[in-house]
Simulated assay, not measured.
Amino acid sequence: MTFRTWTAWPSREALTGQGRTDSRRRIAHVIRLFVLGGLFWSTFARDEVSGWGAAAATAGLLAVAACVWSFHRTTLRHELWRSLGLLALLMGAGAGAHEAGFDIPAVVLWCVCAVSALERLPFAAGLPVGLVALGAFAAVNHDAWLTTLLTAAGLLLAGYVLRLDAEARGTAQRLLAQERAARAAEAESAALAERARIARDIHDVLAHSLSAQLVHLEAARLRIEREPPGEFRDQILERVVGARSMAREGLNETRQALSALRGEMAPLGEYLRELAATDGAEVEIAGAPRALSAEASQTVRRVVQEALTNVRKHAAGARVRIRLTYGTDDVSLEVRDSGGTGKGPAGLGTSGSGYGLLGMRERAELLGGTLEAGSGGPGGKGFSVRLRVPA
Rank of each mutant, 00 (worst) to 15 (best):
M1H: 10
F3L: 14
R4C: 05
R12T: 13
A14K: 03
L15I: 10
L15G: 03
D22N: 07
R24E: 15
A28R: 08
V30E: 11
L36R: 13
G38S: 11
L39I: 11
T43C: 07
A45Q: 13
V49G: 01
A54N: 07
G60Y: 06
L62G: 02
V68Y: 05
F71T: 01
R73Q: 14
R73P: 01
L76Q: 12
H78Q: 15
W81D: 15
R82T: 12
L86P: 01
A88S: 13
A93S: 14
G96P: 01
G96W: 09
H98P: 03
E99I: 13
G101F: 08
I104T: 13
P105V: 06
P105T: 05
A106E: 03
V108R: 00
L109W: 01
V112L: 14
C113G: 05
C113H: 00
A114H: 04
R120M: 02
L121Q: 02
P128N: 09
V129P: 01
G135N: 10
A139T: 08
V140A: 12
D143V: 08
A144C: 06
A144H: 13
T148C: 08
T148W: 04
L156I: 07
L157Q: 10
L157V: 11
G159D: 04
V161Q: 13
V161D: 09
R163M: 01
A166Y: 01
A166W: 00
A168L: 12
T171S: 12
R174P: 00
R180W: 09
A181L: 14
A182D: 13
A185I: 06
E186V: 09
S189E: 14
R195Y: 08
A196G: 06
I202A: 10
H203P: 00
H208T: 15
A212W: 04
L217K: 03
L217H: 04
E218Q: 14
A219N: 14
A219H: 14
A220Q: 07
R221N: 10
L222P: 00
E225P: 00
E227F: 12
P228V: 04
E231T: 04
D234Q: 04
L237P: 01
E238M: 03
V240C: 05
S245Y: 02
M246H: 02
R248Y: 05
E249D: 14
L251H: 06
E253K: 07
R255Y: 13
L258R: 07
E264I: 04
M265H: 10
M265L: 15
M265K: 08
E270W: 08
Y271W: 15
L272M: 11
L275G: 07
D279I: 04
G287E: 11
A291W: 05
A307D: 03
A307H: 06
V311P: 01
G317Q: 03
R321P: 00
I322W: 02
T325A: 14
Y326V: 05
Y326Q: 08
G327I: 09
D329S: 15
D330Y: 04
S332L: 13
V335F: 06
D337C: 06
G342W: 02
P345C: 06
G347D: 02
G349R: 01
L358V: 15
G359Y: 07
L367R: 05
L367H: 08
G368H: 06
G377H: 11
G379S: 08
K381G: 09
R386A: 10
L387F: 11
R388N: 14
P390T: 09
